[in-house]
Computed example of a mutant assay.
Amino acid sequence: MTPSRRTVLAAGFGLSLHFAALPALAAADRRKLVMVICRGGLDGLSLAPPVGDPDYAALRGAFGFESTALKLDDRFALHPALASVHALARSGQARLVPAVATPDRARSHFEAQDVLESGGAVVYGTVSGWLNRAVGVLAARAPVSALSVGPTAPLVLRGPAPAASWTPGFAVDSTARLPTLLQDLYKDDPLLGPALAQGLATEDMARAAMADEAMAPTSPGGGAKAGVESARRLGQTTAGLMREAGGPRIVALSLDGFDTHANQPAQLAPRLAGLDALLDGLHEGLAEDWRDTVVVVVTEFGRTARINGTGGTDHGTASTALVLGGGLKGGGIIGDWPGLRTAALFENRDLAPTLDMRSLFKGVLADQFGLERAVLDTTVFPDSAGARLLTGLT
Rank of each mutant, 00 (worst) to 15 (best):
A81C: 09
A273Y: 01
V296L: 14
H86V: 00
P54E: 02
S128F: 04
R30Q: 15
A10N: 02
D383P: 01
L255E: 08
T175N: 13
A273R: 15
E203R: 08
G199Y: 00
R105V: 14
V297A: 11
S165C: 05
P382H: 05
P154E: 08
G120C: 06
R141E: 10
S359K: 08
A201M: 04
L328T: 02
G14C: 08
K32V: 08
K187N: 12
A94P: 04
A385R: 08
G281T: 04
V380Q: 04
A106L: 14
A28H: 14
V295A: 10
D314Y: 10
P160H: 07
T310Y: 13
D367G: 04
T317S: 14
A146D: 05
R133Y: 11
V251A: 05
R388F: 07
F170C: 01
Q267M: 11
S148I: 10
A321P: 06
T68Q: 12
A89V: 09
P151N: 03
L328M: 06
V295F: 06
A161F: 01
E284R: 02
L25E: 04
I334S: 01
A134Y: 09
M35N: 05
T260V: 08
G386L: 01
A20P: 06
A153F: 00
E203I: 12
S165P: 00
C38W: 07
R349K: 15
L200N: 04
L345M: 05
G246R: 13
L131S: 01
L78R: 01
T126R: 15
A101G: 03
A239V: 04
R158Q: 06
L345T: 11
L17A: 15
A273C: 09
F170N: 04
D336Q: 09
L351K: 10
L286H: 03
S108I: 03
I307V: 14
A27F: 04
V135G: 01
R349I: 13
R271S: 00
V156T: 01
L389C: 04
P54I: 03
R306G: 05
L255D: 03
S91L: 10
G285T: 00
G274H: 08
R177V: 15
F63R: 05
G41V: 10
P103D: 04
L155E: 01
N348R: 15
L59H: 14
V380E: 13
L286S: 04
L116R: 09
T317C: 07
R107Q: 14
Y56E: 02
R232W: 02
L389F: 03
R133H: 07
A211P: 12
G52L: 07
L9V: 06
Q113D: 05
G285L: 01
V51Y: 12
A140M: 08
A134M: 12
C38F: 02
G325P: 06
E229V: 11
F65D: 15
L286T: 03
A11N: 15
S148D: 02
L322A: 00
A101V: 01
S4E: 03
A226S: 14
L322Y: 07
G64I: 03
D336M: 08
T152G: 13
M242R: 15
D188H: 14
P248D: 11
L196H: 06
E213K: 13
H18K: 12
L157M: 02
L147M: 03
A142M: 12
R158D: 00
V34W: 10
A11I: 13
H315L: 11
